[in-house]
Amino acid sequence: MTETAVPTVAGIGSVPNGTHSVPERDLALRVVREALEDASLDLSAIDGVYMPSPRPWTPQGFFSTYLLRLLGLNVDRALEISTGGSSGANAFHSAVSDIRNGTVEAALVLAVERNSIVDTTGPYFDYILKSFDSEFESPIGMTVPAAYAQSMQRYMYEYDIERADLADIVVKNRKNGVANPDGLFDEGLSRDDVLDARLIADPIRLFDCPAPCDGAAAILLTADAVTNSDSPPIAVQGTGYYHTASHFLMSRDSSITELPAVRHAVNTATERAGLVLPDIDVFEPYAPFPHIEAIVLEELGVAKRGDGVAACLDARTPSEGPFSISPSGGCLGRGHPPMVTPLLNYVEVVKQLRGTASTQVRDAKSALTTAEHGHLNGVTATVFGTGV
């Protein structure tokens, strides 16, 4: 089928990351209302609803069906998608595809998550263990930080990386996150704060880990350039996806210090957008640990192997530089409700392209996001740009 329609962001909505005492239903309805008001559209215009499947501890099952009933919506398409931390991104890409091929004309993409209601030593840990190899890894009590600790150790060893320099990536992201009114934190960090924090899985310490929290976000996509009069139309110009033959640290063809799926997904997205990486003004990656941000830059070709840390910290990455990375604070500086994080990245780049971001990149015209479900190596990439 020929793709003709250009998916355009009509409206966005989000709640501050933190702890919310209301049910997921109320958070979802709030961000849907915000997105509709931002787009100046009626609820009846929506003919597609897309979202990540809520986590197992969410009290309400079949959430999308439940939400449709609450909203009184009849739709041509409704999807709940489960691919770990990339679930929100894959839901978004499904909406983009359906708009391109004419299946729907107005797609609501939303995500909601409350981590404050789960005990990390109970249902959460049981859920996480199932993501590892059930025969060899799960029985030893593997954790997500433990997996990333191994790749961090290997990265530091192979490229002679100073542990203190990785701490500076956390400091940089926390500084941006503190400036973000929707972020989780009110105070910045020093290098010593990061290095002296409680050990989680050597060499990863507390502030190297993304802080789980509650959150919700919604994005309304349309087939036409529907926008507020004061905002330029923001188009989804290119999407890409790639999954390598690996599962956490069980990699077949590459080192655990590499994330080749990032490179492939980004190349596809930028090619479809008719852009090259130097054309990108803002980059909001899904980088849950500091060395991952460095490795991602190496996969993009911004830095050579082993030079990613320097690239994260030099003049190419601050908000005033030509290639700004995580001006919102990202996973480390903003807080991390995993099912919502991909959509929060989309919301942030839309704000950048509208000129309303908390840490605004000057004259931003194009933006790139990535999402990945941990070291599982399945990556989405999305290019946004002003104009249709």
Results as ranks from 00 to 15, higher is better:
D193Y: 01
V388Y: 00
T382Y: 05
A273Y: 00
G240C: 05
T83Y: 00
D42R: 10
L344M: 06
A371T: 12
E284L: 03
Y66T: 13
R55I: 15
S116V: 06
A78S: 15
T382E: 03
D193A: 04
V266G: 09
A217F: 08
E162C: 10
R252Q: 15
Q60P: 06
Q150V: 15
N101H: 15
V49I: 10
I325P: 07
G355P: 07
D307N: 10
R154C: 12
S86A: 14
V9Y: 01
C331R: 07
G330D: 03
E34D: 15
T380M: 12
E135T: 06
V361D: 07
G374S: 13
V170Y: 08
A89F: 05
D279N: 09
R334H: 14
E80H: 02
V340D: 06
A225D: 08
A364H: 05
K175S: 14
G177F: 13
V379R: 02
V347K: 07
S53V: 15
Y241N: 09
S21L: 13
T359D: 00
I169G: 11
D307R: 00
L332G: 08
S82D: 15
L36V: 05
D47K: 07
T257I: 03
P54Q: 02
P232K: 02
S138Q: 09
R55E: 15
Q153E: 13
N345G: 11
M142N: 08
L353N: 05
Q360D: 03
Q237L: 08
A303P: 02
T257A: 00
I280D: 04
S255P: 09
T103G: 09
N173A: 11
S40Y: 06
A381D: 09
Y241T: 12
D165E: 12
R100H: 07
P123E: 07
T317C: 02
V109D: 01
A357C: 03
E137P: 06
D307P: 00
A371G: 11
P260R: 00
E298I: 10
G88T: 11
H264G: 10
P54D: 07
E113M: 00
P285C: 09
P23L: 12
L206K: 12
H243V: 14
V144D: 13
V309Y: 01
G13C: 05
P278H: 14
S326C: 11
N180S: 09
V379F: 13
C331N: 11
R305P: 05
L110V: 00
I117K: 05
V118G: 04
E158C: 03
V347Y: 03
G301V: 00
R263G: 10
S251E: 05
D281H: 11
T58Q: 10
V296R: 02
G18K: 08
P54N: 03
A95R: 12
A211P: 07
L36C: 04
N345P: 05
N173L: 02
